[in-house]
Amino acid sequence: MDFLATTALTSLHDLASRMPHSLTEADNQTLSDIYFESVEDLENPESLFNYTLTKAMRKHTTGTQSQEHIYLQRFEIPQIRLFELLIQQFPLANLSQHCTNTLLIDALAQHTHPVLMDIGIGTGFQVANIIEGLSKKENSNVKHLTVVGIEPFADAVTTAHENVKRGSAQAPFTVELVTEVAFIENYTLETLQALLPAQHDGIYANASFALHHIQHASQRKTVFELLKTLGIKALALSEPNSNHYEPNYQRRFQNCVNHYGALFRIIDTLDITNTEKAALKLFFSREIDDVLGNSEEVRVEKHYATEQWEQLLTETGFQLEKREAQFQYTHLNGTDLQTDLPNRYATVFEGEEITSLFWAV
C-alpha cells in the first residue's frame, strides 16, 4: 500500500504546511474529521496509519493527548510477546543487532581484558547476546570482559543486571558489569574514565538507537568528542535513517511519513496475526506521537539522516571503517542487510535505507 497516495494523507500534508499556528477553524475541523474517521476503521492499515498521524497532530495543536485507549484494547498483546516480535520478527531490530553484534564480537575477541561501553544499555538484552556470542567464538582471547552500561532509566538497569548475569552464566571468561543511571551527555572525561577498570586492553562503545535522544546538536558533538578523547577503539553506531531533528514542521511531517510509512509496510509483510501487526504499529506510534505531537523543547525522537551522522563523526575526528565480517544471514522478512556500501552497513527495504550501521574508529 502506498501511504503517500491516500486522499486523507494528502490533506494531512496540506495541514502540516500550516502547522501549528496558521490553522483555520476549517483546518481544525478537517483534522478532527480525519481522526474520527480513522478511529472508526482501525482494522484497515491505511486508517491506522492516518490515526497515528492525526493523533499526534491534534496533540501538537491542542497541547493535550486524546483518551482513546478503549478503541485500541483489541490490539493489546502481552509485553513479552511484543518484545519477541520486535527482536525475532521485526527485521530492522533483528538485522541491525545481528550486524553490530557480529562486528563487536569479532573485535572484542582479539583482546584479553576488553571493555564494552554500552550507551543506552536498556534491559541488557543485546549485551547478553554479545556475551553469549563471544563465549562461542573460536580462538577468542578474552579472559575478563568489563561491561559499562549507561542508561537513564533505573528499572531498565535492574533488568540489565539480570540479563547480563544470564548471558554470562556459561561464559569461559569472567564478566563484570558496571552500570550508571545517567544520560551520556552529562558526563565529563573524568567521570567517564572513573567507570573504567584499572587494567584493560581496548574499549569499544556501542550505541544502538540511543544517541538520537540527545536533544541538541552541540551536545551530540560534545559526546562524540568525549568518546574520541577517551580513546575507544571503535564506536558501533546504529540509527534510523530519517531527519526528525528538522525544526520545520512540514518537512519533518514528510520525513516522518516516509520513514514510519516504510516501517508500517514492513510490518504488513510479517507472517503474524493482524492483531500483532497492529500492536507493533501502535508501539511505533509512540515515536510518531513525539516527532509530530510534542513541542520542540520536549521532543526526544530527534533522529538524524545518514549523512548527518556521517558529518558529525567526521567533524569529531572519527573515520568510518568498513569492518569485514561473516554474517550468518543477511535477509529477514523482506528486508536485507546491505553489505556492499563503502563505509557502513545498512538495513534496506524496497530499495530504501531504513537504518544505518556505522563502525567508526
Rank of each mutant, 00 (worst) to 15 (best):
V257M: 01
L189S: 04
T191A: 09
E190T: 08
A207H: 10
Q254R: 15
P240A: 14
G261K: 00
D268R: 10
S238N: 15
Q219I: 00
H244G: 14
K277F: 06
Q193K: 11
E225A: 13
L282S: 10
I232Y: 02
I232E: 07
R252Y: 08
A217L: 04
T188E: 09
H213R: 06
I288Q: 07
T273Y: 05
A207C: 11
L226G: 00
P240T: 09
I203F: 13
N248T: 11
A279P: 13
K233N: 15
I288H: 09
I267T: 07
N206S: 14
G231Q: 02
L227Q: 02
Q215K: 12
H213Y: 07
A217V: 01
P247I: 14
A262N: 14
T275W: 06
L280A: 11
L211A: 08
L270T: 07
L270E: 12
T229D: 01
F283A: 08
P247N: 13
S218F: 05
H259T: 03
R252G: 09
L280R: 01
R220H: 01
N241C: 02
L237T: 04
L195S: 00
L192S: 08
K228Q: 15
H259P: 00
R286L: 03
A236K: 02
N274M: 08
S242H: 14
L263V: 12
D268W: 12
T275V: 12
Y245S: 10
F253Q: 00
E185H: 05
N248L: 14
L189C: 03
Q193G: 06
L282H: 09
E246Q: 04
A279N: 13
E190F: 08
Y204M: 14
R252S: 08
A205R: 05
